[in-house]
Nucleic acid binder design. Structure first.
Lengths: 188, 188
DNA sequence: CCCAACATTTTACAAATGTTAAAAAATGAA
DNA sequence: TTCATTTTTTAACATTTGTAAAATGTTGGG
């Protein structure tokens, strides 16, 4: 297990010592495309890291579903809301491909955080990285129009464009599917 | 100092022990309205917590400035980008009123994180809370129109509406000042 | 009090995006 | 392959928001 963890960027921040401790509590699991691993209406008991596959986080509204995050190999996949507030939240996470994930029990992880200095700081870095990425996206919503945001997306995550339904990309970019189609039509 | 810290919500998460350790490195400073405490083009050496006053974080574009965060008493004020990447970032933070702040040297704070388990977990919680708040705002940009976002804003932060220039609130909500004026005109 | 600087609102018009519905294209199972 | 289902595109039109500029309102120093 420990050898497998080493291939994931986010684990490379950890020492051998911390990694082996984490490995003790990691289980490798497979789930099919379409599986919803995190449900907004539940307090989910697991923390996952994608070994292979693709995922999206989305929030349900009255008439629509907004995708606000995509995950690929190496990305952390879980509900911060459950974790912090111990309450159901706004986040659903669905697999968009058959995937393999490292699974850790959330209570176990929190216990490790409360006992192990290096892991606590690792958890801090995970949240901080995600915060920076989210803040930048929020700012881009104001600075850039839909066309620029789409161009950035295809430059930065070209693999996702091929594999993910355009309706999900549209809501991720903050536009309707119709608008995204119009943008794409320009490049034909 | 320790007594003063106790009045701030975010410090209430800490034990007496951790609080006294942090207090050793905290300095109370005053700055005037208009002071830019964090500059995007610099790696800033301090971490602040607002004791009293108001602040805004903004990002500079070619033709405009986007305010993406407001801080009030009790809020943490610093550049995650400097802190994580040790590089200049996208965040400027300006005081909108004469303010009093707790100031901690960033290197000192990072050292405390790397040595003190409870403080490391405290730092993790700060980032996680901010992440949830930012993610929710990003989602609201899609689910709610400008009018709803403004109504939410005045309900949730009525004090800010009185004290902050409307141009800053407009960019915080993701609209132009003209649009915000139009929205406000409806309620006259 | 008055003026200058700055903030906010208003107006007219332009551009971007949303809505609805239908057509075309792609996908997957039998 | 073929058919049914789903996804994506296209079209026509409505609505929202943006832009630029002028008008009005506000504030603080002299």
């Amino acid at each position: 297990m420990q050898e497998k963890l080493k291939n994931i960027e986010i684990f490379s921040l950890l020492s051998e010592d911390a990694l082996s401790l984490l490995a003790l509590h990691c289980k490798l699991v497979n789930h099919k495309k379409g599986t919803v691993l995190i449900h907004a209406e539940k307090v989910e008991p697991y923390f996952y890291i994608l070994e292979s596959g693709i995922a999206r986080a989305y929030s349900d509204g009255e008439n629509q579903q907004i995708t606000f995050w995509f995950g690929q190999a190496g990305d952390v996949l879980f509900s911060y809301n459950s974790y912090i507030n111990n309450k159901p939240g706004y986040e659903n996470i669905e697999l968009l491909e058959d995937s393999t994930l490292f699974q850790i029990n959330l209570n176990t992880l929190l216990k490790l955080y409360s006992e192990h200095l290096e892991l606590a700081n690792w958890g801090r870095k995970i949240a901080e990285r995600e915060l920076i990425a989210t803040e930048k996206r929020l700012i881009d919503r104001s600075f850039k129009d839909a066309t620029e945001r789409y161009q950035d997306f295809i430059n930065q995550q070209p693999e996702l464009v091929k594999k993910v339904a355009l309706k999900h990309i549209a809501s991720y970019l903050g536009v309707t599917q119709v608008t995204l189609s119009r943008i794409r039509a320009v490049y034909k």
